[in-house]
Write a protein that binds this DNA or RNA. Structure first.
Lengths: 298, 298
DNA sequence: TTATTTGATTTAGCAAAACTGGATCTGATT
DNA sequence: AATCAGATCCAGTTTTGCTAAATCAAATAA
């Protein structure tokens, strides 16, 4: 099995036909056909269904393509790392909006001191897009919350682990959290982000039935709503950072108290691992008490 | 870059000399030398230091070897998966002692129902050994706690996330957890396992100075010690499962309450992914309230 | 349906690569 | 210094992989 065969295979996948792929990799269609046959022979599997005319990829073929992507990416990463690309150049970063506004700018300043030749570039987007971009090599790393369905070629490591609080206006008399959730007006955080899902999951696990008075899609507005006595809600710790708000009481949320994590996704065996490790350390440091230092890689 | 070159490289590494490696892969020493040169040419790197006579592997060479291992393993996994090995055969499992005694036997019974042809084999060992065995392909998966330094070719996914409790004899008057830890006799859990480290880390993060009266290396004995009024300690939730112990009070430990996780390690792109996913679901289910369902793989 | 077009495959010939065997060279060992 | 083990170089040979042109098969148009 040769990497050229694998490259050819990916060329076929992206250009649909053997002939165009041949052009792309600088060979004749004949050679492409032969390479595919050799691969099929070696793996003892039919990659293409040739009864269709642009040959269709079989389910087995998809598995082979997945392998090809992994292997080629691994080889590319190794090459880049051996060339010593890691010190200079552009570090392609992505981030979800919330972290991009608070943490990242400060982290980047610190990084600048350590690697002056590094030009960081930042793209802000949704976590699913970011994850796909990291997997595809278009980003070196991205900052996203704990997320369902991170591909196995990626590694996510948290730098922040913070608790979620049930917040209630101080005007409301104290009581058991479950009791409060069942009886008081509740401001729901309605959004497509993982945090919303995390909160809803715990609510249903606790078996409470909330009495929704509002649905809001930004955490900041929810805090404001609670402060003004509109109702109670659940928010992550960072949302309460500011001048200790005297009109809000916080109670632990969940059993055990629910925490949410924010971390960095990167490709395993990423060539810039060292820089990303530093970025991780810087971010964890900036997060203070709730920062999470990263396991030593082996 | 051809897999045969990579295989040759690994043969050299394990047999020290080019000549023996040549024998192993069924070629002449000359061919081996040429393959290595071709690799070095393609990657533009010197893999061996030839001023030493059995040529010594250079630091760059080590990186190349790491890549070779990853790539060959990935290729092997793909082949095995395509051959359809996943349904029958032996599932090589490993586990740390604690889980092996409680959870695994029950999980295996349930697995038996689903895959009757599957013969599970179980090895009990320390987590670091288990992780190395999974990485080396000697185990399909292993059950270990959250662990520092899991290699990037492996994936660890938790099926249990349980809180840690500060436990005190009921005879002791109630007080603030920090206060208790600072003033009462403390039974230290002294062991090489991650759990001990997790507890100690949080203790020092809280800034408490414990007053140790005992060092014990099994959780069960610690609970007994607390029950008899010897001192206070910190244990995971499972340790308190049994008949609700009236002589023990539990208080939340850590800010936010510390949780420890137990999960399955497996190789990314493992050929038995489907079975392991089921095992994960079964284990999460057995863990009841603190079970963690696994993210959907993509 | 038939004709046409597009695109994969087959085959033969050729070029490049990879391998072998033996000679040669170089650290390591005594 | 002599010897040994083992890597490398080189010439010749085998194998592999490529091209080009002919052939074949599915899709599309008439």
């Amino acid at each position: 099995m040769d990497t050229r065969q694998l490259k050819t295979l990916l060329a076929i996948r992206s250009h649909g036909t053997f002939a165009q792929a041949a052009d792309l990799v600088g060979l004749t269609p004949s050679a492409v056909s032969q390479q595919v046959h050799a691969l099929e022979e070696e793996l003892r599997v039919t990659i293409f269904d040739r009864t269709k005319r642009p040959p269709r990829i079989t389910p087995d073929g998809l598995q082979v393509i997945e392998m090809a992507e992994d292997i080629l990416r691994r080889a590319e990463d190794a090459k880049a790392s051996l060339r010593g690309d890691q010190i200079a150049g552009t570090l392609m970063l992505g981030s979800v909006r919330s972290s991009a506004l608070n943490l990242l700018p400060r982290a980047m300043v610190q990084m600048r001191g350590r690697y002056p030749d590094l030009k960081p570039s930042l793209r802000v987007s949704l976590s699913s897009t970011l994850i796909a971009d990291v997997a595809g090599g278009r980003l070196d790393a991205a900052i996203v919350a704990e997320h369902l369905g991170i591909p196995s070629t990626l590694r996510w490591s948290p730098f922040l682990r913070e608790p979620l609080w049930l917040i209630v206006p101080r005007s409301m008399e104290a009581s058991d959290p479950i009791e409060l959730l069942n009886t008081r007006p509740y401001i729901r955080f309605r959004s497509a982000v993982p945090l919303a899902n995390l909160i809803d999951t715990e609510l249903s696990r606790l078996g409470v039935v909330t009495n929704d008075v509002a649905e809001i899609d930004t955490i900041g507005s929810i805090v404001t709503g609670v402060r003004q006595g509109l109702g109670i809600s659940v928010v992550p710790h960072v949302a309460l950072q500011e001048p200790e708000d005297l009109n809000i009481m916080r109670l632990t949320f969940g059993v055990p108290q629910v925490t949410r994590q924010i971390g960095i996704v990167e490709r395993t065996a990423a060539p810039r691992a060292e820089i990303i490790a530093l970025l991780h350390a810087v971010l964890a440091d900036l997060c203070g008490d709730y920062g999470v230092v990263r396991p030593i890689r082996s």
